[in-house]
């Protein structure tokens, strides 16, 4: 009962927000080109549905591929950092420094390196989604309870058994926390890539409608992107609930990282 009323209250916040937006735009007579009311955005989204859908696909591909590359390489490097002192000590300062860099600033450079189209988008998405995976997963793997590992030693466990039975499941909550951050970063990366180096995709639509002062279409594209982002995020939450025991306890934290 309590949960139900909370859900109703949460929905109300959204409704109040859009209603206030609609009303204020009319009351203050704000020009649609500055801020269109939600109703006009909805109409524009419907009228341009084909254009938006066609352009959602390349953005989705860029986000997903960039994210998957980031997760795969990040995971492997995290294992290296967790299990090899040399790798850890050599690469850690570099990784921290690289994490601080504003990687978005490299987007125009990637246009020069990788040309126009899908590749630079994937590279930017992967590059900024990569660091949370490395750092979080390495932290998860190294924070394993030492007594548990000693316990496994006393039983005569092999290194592989310790990894698969203890360290890997131990690191899973850290890994999924990283995935949730990384997917949102991959979205940012893909869109920035489309701003600078693409002839299609939602980022391109935003850019193009900006030039033609079609603010309604711009908002419609932003809505599409938000829906896409939320869906991708939910896929990760679902995977987490399948794999990590007690993941639901963490659900509020998950939405906080969004």
């Amino acid at each position: 009962m309590y949960r139900l009323s909370v859900a109703a209250g949460q929905a109300m916040v959204f409704i109040v927000f859009f209603a206030a937006w609609e009303v204020l735009v009319h009351l203050l007579q704000i020009k649609p080109v500055i801020l269109p009311p939600p109703s006009r955005i909805a109409v524009s989204a419907w009228e341009n549905r084909e254009l938006l859908l066609v352009n959602t696909w390349p953005t989705f591909v860029a986000i997903t591929l960039g994210f998957l590359y980031a997760v795969a390489t990040g995971f492997v490097i995290a294992i290296g950092i967790a299990y090899s002192r040399i790798i850890r000590e050599l690469t850690y300062p570099f990784l921290v420094a690289a994490q601080i860099l504003p990687k978005i600033a490299f987007a125009p450079l990637f246009l020069i390196w990788f040309g126009f189209g899908l590749t630079p988008k994937i590279v930017i998405a992967a590059l900024i989604a990569f660091f949370p995976v490395v750092i979080n997963t390495a932290k998860g793997l190294t924070s394993v309870d030492k007594e548990l590992l000693q316990y496994m030693d006393s039983l005569g466990a092999s290194g592989w058994e310790k990894f698969t039975k203890i360290s890997l499941p131990w690191a899973m909550p850290y890994f999924f926390a990283a995935l949730k951050i990384s997917i949102t970063l991959a979205i940012v990366g893909a869109v920035v890539g489309e701003f600078v180096a693409a002839g299609e995709g939602l980022g391109y639509i935003i850019n193009a409608s900006n030039i033609s002062l079609d603010t309604e279409l711009m908002f419609a594209a932003i809505v599409c992107m938000s829906v896409l982002g939320i869906l991708l995020f939910l896929v990760i939450v679902a995977a987490e609930r399948l794999i990590v025991v007690n993941a639901q306890d963490d659900a509020s934290g998950a939405s906080a990282t969004m």
Partner: peptide, 25 residues
């Protein structure tokens, strides 16, 4: 071994926790 802390694996059920030692040893 039995320590002051139970040192169980939080992602395993009771049954799977008991099976751990047999799986390895």
């Amino acid at each position: 071994y039995v320590f002051q802390r139970p040192l169980l694996l939080p992602w395993r059920t009771t049954l799977d926790n008991v099976m751990l030692t047999m799986e390895v040893a």
